[in-house]
Design a protein around this nucleic acid. Structure first.
Lengths: 222, 222
DNA sequence: GGTTGTCAGCTTGTCTGAGGAGTTGATACG
DNA sequence: CGTATCAACTCCTCAGACAAGCTGACAACC
């Protein structure tokens, strides 16, 4: 028998398939380990490892003495994977949505500490734009954008931004490789404008500036 | 010894702790099963189950004959958990960001099929608003909002919306329980206005209408 | 009747020993 | 120097044994 995956993983896939097919509903109890082992033609410890794997993925839950139960009908979406597979333009539009709303809320809720953070990250970005290697420049750019979102004081927006960062970073690396001139076009002034609008407590302007800048970024990819 | 969690789970937590502490870097190879078992004072199968659980969580990867390797330094953010724990106002602001941008793009990219979908879901929502039980009404409302985001034809925005849905649904259930009058205030006209703006291919108006409506929803929670 | 206590039979949890299968690096050879 | 072989190491799977926990049935009691 040729195997690309270990038996335990195959068994986990099979269990997942059966759950998806509706054989076991949400909250249902699976047959006992010995029964399952016999059904799938594998040993009991193999079934245990399969169940343990799905428990790690929050699909099954086993309670000693009681049995194994279905606690979710599908695997929670892995956002890293979703973003890796998605079109970069779709990703950038998602980023635009997050940051534009972030800039708007930042203009309302920003604190003195947030403004200080703007000054610091903008100055850093300015320096990196002229002489630092690509990865420094990228990190400095991302740091400013993160400062904006952080100033919105919304944990969900911040978490969303952080989820997008790895994918955006990779896209920026690719862009800089392909286009040496990009750093010059990627204007410092646009970033200053966003920070100014937030400083001035003008939500609509902040959102507009953010939208302008990020639309330009998205367009630059094409 | 009193145990609330099985040994295998405790072992998994311990491995996770050691990875987090930097004992094993990204890509590093863990000691063999027998060594780990001796270190943690448990049996080999217990270690195997712990490793299998972390493999399910995409933190470890075991390759037969080679060893067990660290493939991620931390557990990928579980968005269900993040949203469950977050303030509902933060969640609704995230939703606002997604849907407002969704409405804007929908006004640009909507197809005849999308418009048909609007008509259908709006009519359904109208019916549910007057006589259907709470959960039908909630599903009808969500169906329209999803139709808007879908019309943006952006896979990332759609996936984001779907991630938020369970948390929003629960919040709506709670609101309807607390406030019987809410369904009347939750105006059908606002939804029609969003659909009209998208139909008219007016991105700014669609975004504005969406923002108005969702701001009202967010305010209603307070 | 209704409540409580007991227990048998089920379940998962853990350990051990054995052998199979794949990987890796050292070593001998051409 | 390049290649082939192989031994040692790794994970993979199975089987059997016993511990620990849950559940429902049934008897005892109030």
């Amino acid at each position: 028998m040729i195997r690309r995956h270990p038996l335990a993983e195959q068994a986990a896939e099979e269990l997942l398939r059966r759950i998806g097919s509706g054989e076991w509903a949400l909250g249902a109890k699976l047959p006992g380990e010995t029964t399952l082992a016999a059904q799938l033609g594998v040993g009991r410890s193999t079934i245990r490892e399969a169940v343990r794997e799905l428990a790690g993925r929050r699909v099954l839950e086993s309670r000693q003495g009681a049995g194994v139960f279905v606690i979710a009908l599908q695997v929670a979406e892995d956002w890293d994977k979703v973003l890796r597979k998605a079109d970069i333009t779709d990703v950038l539009e998602g980023r635009l949505a997050i940051e534009t709303e972030g800039a708007r809320m930042a203009a309302i809720r920003r604190t003195p500490a947030d403004l200080k953070n703007f000054r610091y990250t903008l100055a850093d970005r300015q320096r990196a734009a002229v002489k630092a290697p690509d990865d420094w420049y990228i990190e400095a750019d991302l740091a400013f954008h993160r400062a904006v979102v952080t100033a919105a004081h919304n944990a969900v927006l911040t978490e969303l931004f952080d989820t997008f960062v790895p994918r955006i970073r990779r896209a920026m690396i690719d862009m800089l490789k392909l286009d040496e001139e990009h750093r010059h076009r990627h204007d410092q002034a646009a970033h200053e404008a966003i920070a100014d609008a937030i400083r001035a407590k003008d939500p609509d302007l902040a959102a507009a500036r953010s939208r302008e800048h990020l639309s330009a970024v998205r367009s630059a990819v094409n």
